[in-house]
C-alpha cells in the first residue's frame, strides 16, 4: 500500500493545530523547577490531592457508567415525547460554566437544596464539603460525555444482533448484558475514558459545590489553582504530575483496548 501524503495546506494547518497544544505543555516542562520536583511529588499534600483526584474521578466514572449507560439506552431506543428536550437538559453541563453547575448542585443537593434539605433532615446526610460531594460534582460535569458517546454507539450498532438473540430465546435483560453491551464495548470504553478525563480535570463545580479542604475535597486541579497564587513553581509541578498521570492512563488504555497508537 502506498503511504498517503497530506496536501501542503492541510499539513501546515495540522502542524499549527498540534503546536497549539504542544507549546503550552513545553512551557510547563521548561518552567518547572526540577530540583524541587522530586520533593513536591513525594510531599504528603501532593500525594493526598493525587489520591483524592484518582479516587473521586474513578468513582465518578463508575457512577456515570451505572446511571449513564441506562440513560443512553433510553435515549437511543425509547421514543417518548420530550426526549430531545430531556437529552438537551442532561447534556447541558457540557456547555454550562462548571461554576454555574456547582451552584445548581448546591440548590438541589445543598443543605437548603430541594433534595438536600430532605437528605439532611431525614438521614443527616450533607454533601457539600465531603468527598461524596466531589464525586457528585465530577459526575454532574463528566457524565454527559459518557451518555453521548454511548448513545452514539447504541445508535450505530447493528440491532439485528439483538434480533438474532431474541430468536434464540434471550430475554431483554440478557440481550442487554450479553449482546448489546459487548457489542458497544468500544463506545463504552471511549465514553468512560472521556468521562474520567473530564472528571479528573474538574475544577469549577467541585470548588463551588464541595469546597476545598486538603484530604477531603481538595483535588489536584484545586491544589494547582490555589498554589498558583503563592507558589507558581509548585503549581507547575502539580500540573505536570496531573499531566503525566493522565497521559500514562490515556496512552496505556488506548493501546490496550484499541490495539493501536
Amino acid at each position: 500500500m502506498r503511504r498517503e501524503r497530506a496536501p501542503l495546506a492541510i499539513g501546515i494547518l495540522a502542524a499549527a493545530g498540534a503546536a497549539f497544544f504542544i507549546l503550552p505543555l513545553i512551557g510547563l516542562v521548561v518552567r518547572t523547577p526540577w530540583a524541587d520536583a522530586a520533593r513536591a511529588v513525594t510531599s504528603a499534600d501532593t500525594l493526598e490531592a493525587l489520591r483524592l483526584s484518582l479516587v473521586a474521578s474513578l468513582t465518578a466514572t463508575g457512577v456515570a457508567l451505572v446511571l449513564g449507560v441506562p440513560l443512553a439506552w433510553v435515549y437511543a431506543r425509547i421514543e417518548f415525547p420530550g426526549r430531545s428536550v430531556l437529552r438537551a437538559l442532561t447534556t447541558l453541563p457540557m456547555v454550562l460554566p462548571p461554576v454555574v453547575g456547582g451552584i445548581a448542585l448546591l440548590l438541589a443537593f445543598g443543605r437548603r437544596g430541594l433534595l438536600g434539605s430532605w437528605l439532611e433532615s431525614s438521614f443527616g446526610i450533607s454533601l457539600p464539603f465531603t468527598t461524596a460531594g466531589v464525586v457528585f460534582a465530577e459526575t454532574f460535569v463528566a457524565m454527559p460525555f459518557l451518555v453521548l458517546t454511548v448513545e452514539a454507539g447504541l445508535r450505530s450498532m447493528d440491532r439485528r444482533y439483538e434480533d438474532a438473540a431474541r430468536t434464540l430465546g434471550a430475554k431483554r435483560w440478557t440481550i442487554f448484558t450479553r449482546v448489546t453491551l459487548p457489542l458497544i464495548a468500544p463506545s463504552l470504553f471511549a465514553g468512560a475514558v472521556l468521562c474520567w478525563a473530564r472528571a479528573l480535570g474538574e475544577f469549577g463545580a467541585t470548588i463551588t459545590f464541595a469546597g476545598n479542604f486538603p484530604g477531603v475535597t481538595q483535588t489536584m486541579p484545586l491544589a494547582v489553582y490555589l498554589l498558583l497564587g503563592t507558589n507558581p513553581e509548585g503549581s507547575y509541578i502539580l500540573s505536570l504530575i496531573l499531566l503525566v498521570v493522565s497521559l500514562v492512563v490515556l496512552v496505556g488504555l488506548r493501546h490496550r483496548w484499541l490495539g493501536s497508537a
Binding site: D158, R160, Y161, D163, A164, A165, T167, L168, G169, A170, K171, T174, R178, V179, P182, L183, A185
Partner: peptide, 26 residues
C-alpha cells in the same frame, strides 16, 4: 430458529458460545 442473511454471529463470543447461546437462553 433463524439463520440471518449475513449470519449475525456474535463477534465477541467464541464459536462454541455462539452455538450455546440459545441453549442458555432456553
Amino acid at each position: 430458529g433463524f439463520v440471518f442473511q449475513d449470519y449475525l454471529l456474535f463477534p465477541h463470543l467464541s464459536v462454541l458460545d455462539n452455538v450455546a447461546f440459545g441453549l442458555r437462553s432456553r
